[in-house]
């Protein structure tokens, strides 16, 4: 199929194979073999010895490292939460959010604290913020997955806020809460995003 392309077939279709063509074909064949050989040598060996283990382990290591760091950052919040000192825990979280604005775990803890206080709307809203920042929370293939916990809450939230919407159709807060529910449900459903 490709051979006519290499035979110097010009615009007029004539078949001319001169010494330059023969030299070119030999050079192309030689270069192809060398390239494939080098690629095979480099990639196959490297992949077997370093990469295959390294990628998987590297991924786990980075999660473990992050979790270790988070443990230190949120130690006090966890302690206050366990003792039932929710306002103090939330105040501490506000400080952490200012210091580490990109750490999505703050919003997970915030959601859990609101849940302890029976604030479903705020709980769901903070889970949404956490998922927007870190998609791994709804990805069951990662150690950060908390999708089941979120799923339970949004199912409960959908029923509650749908009822509230029927009673107060123009209430902006209820509509906002339902939007948060739908967002989380869509993320939990998966898809290419």
């Amino acid at each position: 199929m490709l051979f006519p392309l290499l035979k110097g077939q010009g615009y007029h279709g004539e078949q001319i194979v001169d010494w330059l063509d023969k030299l070119s074909i030999a050079a192309i064949a030689g270069l192809t073999l060398i390239t494939v050989g080098m690629l095979a040598n480099q990639e196959m060996i490297t992949r077997r010895h370093d990469n295959a283990e390294g990628v998987a382990k590297g991924g786990e290591d980075s999660y473990a490292l992050q979790m270790e760091m988070d443990k230190k950052i949120y130690e006090e919040v966890v302690s206050l939460k366990e003792q039932g000192h929710y306002p103090e825990a939330m105040a501490k979280l506000e400080t952490i959010i200012k210091k580490y604005p990109e750490n999505s775990l703050s919003y997970v803890y915030l959601a859990q604290l609101y849940l302890e206080q029976g604030e479903l709307r705020e709980t769901i809203h903070n889970y949404r913020r956490a998922v927007e920042m870190e998609a791994d929370y709804v990805d069951e293939r990662t150690p950060l997955f908390i999708g089941n916990e979120i799923k339970k809450l949004v199912t409960e939230g959908r029923e509650k806020f749908s009822r509230e919407k029927a009673l107060k159709p123009k209430d902006k807060e209820v509509r906002k809460a339902l939007k948060d529910v739908y967002y989380l449900q869509s993320r939990l459903a998966g898809g290419c995003e």
Binding site: V181, Y182, S186, L188, A189, G191, E193
Partner: peptide, 12 residues
């Protein structure tokens, strides 16, 4: 799954 809300990779 029939519906407008909570569909995978979709928005409103």
């Amino acid at each position: 799954r029939w519906g407008m809300n909570a569909q995978p990779a979709s928005h409103l």
